[in-house]
């Protein structure tokens, strides 16, 4: 039983990897960016667990800026993904412009909230 699951898992990862190699580089860059953001968020959560939640607003803004960045990047990824049929009539340029606007708002708020 355990063997079969592990085999299945191996097969699964194989197919996952193969599927992922097929994705265009633009999306890969986005994925990298998302992973970077999520990773930073996790580090901050761990840091908060160690030093305590005193400047809570700073913690919040730090973590939320990471999460926000990640979420927005995911949204962008969804929109520029050519396989996604839902957004055919949405030009990638438009999607990117929206993304930039969204990020600007996000970071403005973060700076406001940081201090």
């Amino acid at each position: 039983m355990a063997r079969s699951t592990s085999k299945d898992a191996q097969a699964l990862f194989q197919s996952l990897r193969s599927a992922y190699t097929a994705t265009p580089t633009t999306l890969k860059i986005i994925d990298l960016y998302v992973i970077y953001a999520v990773f930073t968020a996790l580090i901050q959560v761990a840091y908060m667990a160690i030093v305590g939640s005193f400047p809570f607003n700073s913690f919040l803004s730090g973590v939320l800026s990471c999460i926000g960045t990640a979420v927005l990047a995911v949204c962008l990824r969804i929109q520029v993904n050519k396989e996604n049929k839902e957004f055919k009539d949405l030009a990638p340029e438009r999607a990117f412009a929206d993304f930039v606007l969204c990020n600007l708002v996000l970071h403005l708020v973060i700076i406001n909230f940081l201090g």
Partner: peptide, 9 residues
Amino acid sequence: TAYPYYGSA
């Protein structure tokens, strides 16, 4: 204490 947060932001 909050410098890491500033840094990450």
